[in-house]
Structure formats: C-alpha cells, structure tokens
Design a protein around this nucleic acid. Structure first.
Lengths: 193, 193
DNA sequence: GATATGCATTGATATAGGGTAAGAAATGCA
DNA sequence: TGCATTTCTTACCCTATATCAATGCATATC
C-alpha cells in the first residue's frame, strides 16, 4: 500500500491494518508530468485524486482567457471537481500538475464500495467537504474585506510551503490580482521591513 | 406538521407520510421579528434553521465594522453556521431576520436522531452541502472575473425574487461593493436600456 | 402633523489595482 | 555553453470602485 496514503489515513482516522489495505486497494496510481492535465473544461470528471507527490492545481478560465486558481493540492491533499464527479456532468474546471506528480485516483464505483465497506469513510469525506466549505467561505469574506497586500501576507502565512514551490503568477491568480500587482506588492512589503 | 416544510420535503426527497411527520416532530418553531438575531459572533450555534416565512441573512463584520453578507435565506432555505454548529466552537458570523420571519430549528441531538431514524436524510444534507460548495466556488470565480455591473446583473437574474425584498445596501454588501457604487451601477443599467 | 431615522442618490475627489510594454532575471533545453 | 522560453520586475498611464459629504425621500415615532 502507498506509504503517503497510509501515513495520512493513520493520522486522520482510526482504522485497522486490514481496512487501510483495503482502502488502498481501491485506488489506482497515476504518474503525471509537469503540465499534464487530470481534467479539462468540458470533460466529465471520473476521479477524485489524492496527491502523493508533487502539486496540482484546480482552476477555471474566464471569457477573456484569464486563469483563476481555486485550489493548490500538494502531497496529502484531495483534489477534484465534486460536482462533475458525482453528477456526471461536464466540468467547468481544469486540473493540471504544476510539478511532476503522483496521484492516487478513486473513481465513483470505488467510492461507493469504500463507503459500503468502510462506513467511517463517509463521515471522513463529509468532514473534508465541510472543511473545504468553511475555508471557501472565509476566502470570500477575506477577498471582500482585505487589501491585496493583506491577502498576500495572509497567504504566505497560511501556506508558507506553497510560497516556495508555486510560481508567483499562480499565487497572483489565486489571490485574484495580476502578476504585476503582486510583484509591486512584494517590493513594498520588502522595503517596509 | 408545518406545511412549508412538508411541501419542500415532498418535492426534494421521497419519504412516506410517517417519516415526514417524524422529521417535522424533531424541529421546533421560532418566530423572529425583523432585526432579531438567530446567531451572533462569539456565540456557539445550537441550531440549523429552515425558513418557513420571511427572510434571514448570514454575514460577518470585519475590523472596520463593515458587514459582508454570505447568504440570504428566504422561505424553503436552510441557514446556519455549520462549523460552529457541528464543532461546538464560537461562530464568527451573525444571522438575523431582515423581515418578520418564522423558522424551524434543528439542534444537534435532533440532527443525530434524524440521521439515525431516516438514513435518506444523510445523503440529502450531504447534497445540500455540496450544492452550497459549488455555488460558493462559483461566487469566488465570478467575483474575480466579472465587473461589479456584471455581478449585479447576474445577481438579479439568479435571484429575481431577492431583488424585490432585500434592501439595496444589502445586495451591495453581498456583491462586495459599496451602496453608492450599486446606486450608480443601477442608474447606468437603466439608462443603457 | 412635526420630527427623527434610515435608505438611496448624486457630486467631487482619491486610490488601489489594472493594462500595456519593455527589459531583466531565471530556468530549461540542446 | 549558449540560446530560448518562461517568469519576474519596473515604469507609465488609466479605470473602476471607494470615500466623503450633502441632499432628498420615505417611513416610523411621538
């Protein structure tokens, strides 16, 4: 069984060795090169992914061709378009790898099996979803009440590890500002110190 | 049993008469006058509310004292601070009535009982939560990619009924703009026609 | 019926962040 | 090692929206 998943699950949910193995057996490994897509707009998402190596991103592209990043997913994060996945509808999002990566994929039948065989997993995913919702709501509030500089400082404080590995223009896209603005903000922040 | 809830549930989930009655019996009615609070920042949320009459709002107040509305909830909507409710932690939100209203309250024990007695309710609330998450994510994207005018036009198209009953400055707060800006935008939109 | 209160409008001015373009720096590639 | 590509920075000007202040209505209060 994959070691990253094992460590993660042991940490998060109390299961015996057999259950852990079973969970792992339901997922399939996929290697992704940098820039490889896991999902494109218009596709129907067939998987939810657990990242064991590297880093992916979830984003949409607006009418003017501009990318808007909703989520980064490094090791031990889940990523996917829940709506497309569970309703079998075309996605409006893209997911791709921003580094060479490795993911464990769970398809819908596997999820159903998992929920049937390991009922604890239901509450587990429910909790994940709730945490996501809480974070997303906070992001709305914060984007309405704080300046770009404050949001940037909050970002590097909340996700210090991302700041190292994610290119700056993607952080800008996540924050909802242009790369130029972020560059100016960083300059200000540095000279302020 | 409350008629609004009955109609709503019949529409959304297939249950027999007995189950409907049972569900209804777990909720308690509360009348709210306009401006009454259901939840204040710092409180621990003891209920999730189903609105049967009137309209409530969920919002936070930032450091500068500015309100940011996350959700309006007219008849047949659920409203609450899930995080505070399920984790028993102090809320960072306010919920109040913007009209004289009537809600059905579900506390945590009632929810647990409901989930035990009517297993279909679990998936039902999960679906609600997922829809909420999808909508919240779209709101982030939209606030990053569209102008205030586009967001306003989208709002009145998506929630035409709200536009009638919700004061303008609250719509502005939901859209993340000032009441003055909204007033100017409306003027523009009208003269454009 | 007079007055206070809250909400929407309007005008004048300020500002954060965007758009564009160019160059510098870093990174990948051959 | 050197060229190409991508990423980041800087400068200039511009626009959308905010801020502040005043005014007009409508509604509630006494």
């Amino acid at each position: 069984m994959n070691e990253v998943l094992k460590k993660y699950l042991k940490n998060k949910i109390s299961l015996n060795e057999e259950q852990l193995e079973y969970w792992g057996s339901l997922l399939t490994l996929r290697d992704l090169n940098k820039n490889d897509f896991l999902l494109r707009e218009g596709d129907i998402s067939k998987h939810t992914a657990f990242v064991t190596k590297g880093c992916l991103r979830l984003y949409s592209i607006d009418l003017k061709g501009k990318e808007h990043i909703l989520q980064f997913a490094p090791e031990e994060w889940w990523i996917g378009d829940m709506e497309s996945f569970s309703k079998n509808t075309p996605s409006s999002y893209f997911i791709d790898a921003i580094e060479d990566s490795e993911v464990l994929l769970m398809d819908l039948p596997a999820q159903e099996t998992l929920f049937r065989q390991i009922p604890e997993a239901v509450a587990f995913f429910q909790q994940l979803m709730q945490n996501r919702q809480v974070a997303t709501q906070k992001r709305i509030i914060f984007s309405m009440s704080a300046s770009a500089e404050q949001r940037y400082l909050d970002f590097i404080k909340t996700y210090p590890s991302f700041t190292q590995r994610v290119p700056q223009h993607m952080i800008a896209s996540y924050l909802g500002i242009t790369p130029e603005s972020l560059s100016r903000i960083r300059k200000q922040v540095i000279t302020k110190k």
